[in-house]
């Protein structure tokens, strides 16, 4: 699913908080990367984070009538 930048920010932020509090990582961390936010971003790019967004309403393209 294509996330808006707000959704991406929230997801990465929430995951970064988890990592900072000691949660196990879902990727193998590359050498020297310790920052939780960077790690969370790497997980996000691989599509591994099990957090998603609940969207209310649908996106309407073009005129309705």
């Amino acid at each position: 699913m294509k996330y808006t930048r707000f959704e991406k920010a929230r997801i990465v932020g929430a995951r970064a908080l988890q990592i900072a509090m000691g949660a196990p990582l879902l990727i193998k961390p590359p050498k020297g990367v310790v920052d939780p936010v960077q790690l969370a971003m790497l997980e996000f790019e691989k599509g591994l984070i099990p957090i998603t967004v609940r969207r209310r309403g649908k996106l309407i393209k073009g005129p309705a009538v």
């Binding site: 929430a14 591994l48 984070i49 099990p50 957090i51 998603t52 967004v53 609940r54």
Partner: peptide
């Protein structure tokens, strides 16, 4: 607005893979 509009939820499918 912005990030305050986002409702996070668990993605059960991905969680299963984890």
């Amino acid at each position: 607005l912005g990030t305050g509009s986002v409702e996070l939820a668990i993605d059960v499918k991905k969680l299963g893979k984890v």
